[in-house]
């Protein structure tokens, strides 16, 4: 019975990780890729680790480190996503051509505005 539960957890987890990586390959610009990398990969890893945790719990071993890792991944994934996308935007990495609003660009002070090759970004 527990084997079925563990199998389901592990299969969902690996599928979500695959979705995350496919998103990193398929999506057009870094900001959209960041969505895939944070949401899907995080939940996928949490599923995989909890599968492992349940397996050892059914064997009678309680591994606290795995629980710590789940909490840690949940806490750090949003921070890493924010810092990476912010540094990309400040370095002038182009947005996808179909992006509608860019209100972050308007918020920068004049002398700090990143340089961006707009002609290249306009092409789809």
């Amino acid at each position: 019975m527990t084997e079925i539960l563990i199998s389901i957890l592990v299969l969902i987890g690996s599928f979500l990780s695959l979705i995350g990586s496919l998103g990193i390959i398929r999506l057009p610009d870094i900001y959209s890729r960041m969505h895939a990398a944070t949401k899907s990969a995080t939940l996928g890893v949490v599923f995989l680790i909890s599968g492992s945790f349940v397996f050892f719990l059914s064997e009678g071993v309680f591994i606290l480190q795995l629980l710590f890792t789940i909490a840690f991944v949940f806490l750090t994934a949003p921070v890493a996503a924010m810092i990476i996308s912010r540094s990309a935007h400040r370095n002038g990495v182009e947005l996808w051509g179909r992006t509608k609003h860019d209100e972050l660009m308007e918020s920068y002070p004049e002398h700090l505005e990143p340089e961006r090759d707009n002609e290249k970004a306009d092409q789809p």
């Binding site: 987890g13 990780s17 995350g20 996928g44 890893v45 995989l48 680790i49 599968g51 492992s52 991944v73």
Partner: peptide, 10 residues
């Protein structure tokens, strides 16, 4: 790195 964690836990 995240995927590697899952890999090791399997």
């Amino acid at each position: 790195g995240l995927n590697l964690i899952g890999f090791i836990s399997i």
